[in-house]
């Protein structure tokens, strides 16, 4: 095979660009990992690269801190948020997908997403305060639903669009009600979409700092808030923070990788396609 000089040059430049991009993305992870295994005596010294690895930060976080409780809180809040979001979002997405009146209607779901969270937090705070739900997991879940439900619904519209309408017609002729047709035939057909939307919603809730910071106290504190908490009056506890960050990032990485195939379809899939 003869490869021309231009071809080789463009391939070389392309590879180099990708290589640089990968380094830019991965370097912070490497750096955080190194921080996490630095002995505490070298904490807060990012300039030191040669040291004796130590697991003291990890030991400290796992056994002598509130981080395990924070993880549990984050996990519980994200899980319940996602379950409710799917229960509400799937029928909503189905309705928008089958609705043929006004094509732009589906974009109205995104209106909730476009509002800055700062607008919602004040009424939400007052509401939860009156209901005595500040510093409770229920309060945080309520807040998270405001942005996870629309995202999950938006994400699913594209998947429902791809299910032929004949399927529910057939089920209704076969002796089922429209709602039965929806949950016996249509929902199973979009299972990959449900899984992907669920994971996407989970990650959104898991990563949220804004609402959690303002609505949680010691009891319901989530992992991102705990991570931010390592920035103390005495300075940043970089080593411990690094450990907590890694713990927070790992599930996100695994989950995102598992749905990468459906991710693009979900995010872009509800757009123009007729």
């Amino acid at each position: 095979m003869i490869v021309s000089f231009e071809n080789r040059l463009s391939r070389f430049l392309g590879t180099t660009a990708i290589f640089i991009a990968i380094i830019l993305v991965l370097f912070p992870f490497l750096w955080i990992f190194l921080e996490s295994i630095k002995p505490p005596s070298l904490g807060g010294r990012p300039d030191i690269w040669r040291f004796e690895p130590s697991w003291e930060n990890w030991h400290e976080i796992v056994f002598n801190s509130n981080v395990p409780l924070n993880i549990l809180n984050s996990f519980f809040i994200a899980l319940i948020t996602v379950v409710i979001s799917l229960i509400c979002g799937a029928p909503a997405a189905y309705a928008f997908s089958r609705f043929r009146g006004f094509q732009g209607a589906r974009y109205s779901i995104l209106a909730a997403e476009m509002m800055p969270p700062a607008i919602l937090i004040l009424p939400l705070f007052l509401l939860l305060y009156k209901l005595e739900l500040i510093d409770s997991r229920v309060g945080v879940i309520t807040a998270h639903l405001t942005f996870v439900v629309p995202v999950v619904a938006w994400f699913l519209i594209g998947f429902f669009d791809e299910v032929p309408k004949d399927l529910e017609d057939q089920a209704m002729i076969d002796g089922y009600t429209r709602f039965q047709a929806f949950y016996k035939v249509i929902l199973p057909a979009v299972r990959p979409g449900l899984a992907a939307a669920g994971i996407f919603g989970f990650v959104l809730s898991w990563n949220d700092l804004f609402y959690s910071l303002l609505l949680t106290g010691a009891e319901s504190r989530t992992l991102p808030v705990a991570i931010a908490g390592f920035w103390t009056f005495r300075g940043i506890e970089l080593g411990k923070m690094a450990v907590a960050i890694l713990i927070a990032v790992i599930p996100v990485l695994i989950l995102s990788y598992s749905i990468q195939k459906h991710l693009i379809r979900g995010i872009g899939g509800s757009g123009v396609k007729y």
Binding site: P164, D166, L167, D169, Q170, A171, I173, V185, P188, A189, R191
Partner: peptide, 13 residues
């Protein structure tokens, strides 16, 4: 009644 659709509408799952 029973109906056969153009694209058969078989339940994929």
């Amino acid at each position: 009644i029973a109906m056969v659709f153009q694209n058969y509408a078989l339940y994929p799952t």
